[in-house]
């Protein structure tokens, strides 16, 4: 966060105006529409880098939709964000942008449904700040300390929500597993045919 970047509001507004093309279903196997690797490659080129080579594209061509579609959806939205003219005109963010898109979104994808980063103000700010941080930038008008503090506040609140939700989910899963183990020793219920 050593250097000043664009105004945060310009980024969150850009996210709120994310066009439908960047919210479309990412292509994974036969499903979906948008080839994410191609969109990322175009962005990297526009940011002053070289188009992706095959080894780089692999990060955006997973086979298992169940695991990766939310991450790829986030990558598409982030591509839209990084197409902001402020980033394009500097022609120096290609490398960091690729790293962020390929590796930096996995954690966010675990707990935030991608469309929320467009529809929900807090999640818009979270993605915008996460993105700036990955590029070693801070929002215009903020000091490094302010940017870090605001990032932490957002991140902490979200993290606490996620931890709470994960704890509840784990507790429910444990209850189901225990109920199933207990019922294994019990009688089931009658049915007229079997499989």
């Amino acid at each position: 966060m050593t250097q000043e970047g664009p105004f945060l509001e310009s980024l969150t507004r850009r996210l709120a105006e994310c066009p439908a093309d960047f919210l479309a279903e990412p292509r994974i196997g036969p499903a979906g529409k948008v080839h994410v690797a191609a969109v990322v490659s175009d962005l990297i080129r526009d940011l002053g880098g070289e188009p992706l080579i095959k080894a780089q594209a692999v990060a955006f061509e997973p086979k298992d939709a169940k695991k990766h579609r939310n991450r790829l959806s986030l990558a598409l939205i982030t591509c839209w964000l990084l197409h902001d003219p402020w980033f394009l005109q500097h022609k120096r963010f290609a490398e960091k942008a690729y790293e962020f898109l390929a590796l930096g979104l996995a954690e966010l994808a675990e707990h935030v449904r991608a469309p929320l980063c467009v529809s929900d103000p807090d999640r818009r700010e979270e993605l915008a700040r996460l993105c700036l941080k990955a590029l070693d930038l801070r929002p215009a008008g903020e000091t490094e300390a302010q940017a870090q503090d605001r990032f932490n506040t957002l991140n902490t609140a979200e993290r606490q929500r996620v931890i709470r939700a994960a704890r509840e989910a784990e507790e429910r899963a444990r209850q189901i597993r225990e109920a199933m183990a207990r019922k294994e020793a019990e009688e089931a219920a009658d049915k007229w045919s079997r499989e």
Binding site: E25, A31, D64
Partner: peptide
């Protein structure tokens, strides 16, 4: 865990 519901049923894993 799939994320948001896809608009198209056939895009559901």
């Amino acid at each position: 865990r799939y994320g948001a519901r896809p608009a198209n049923f056939h895009d559901i894993p």
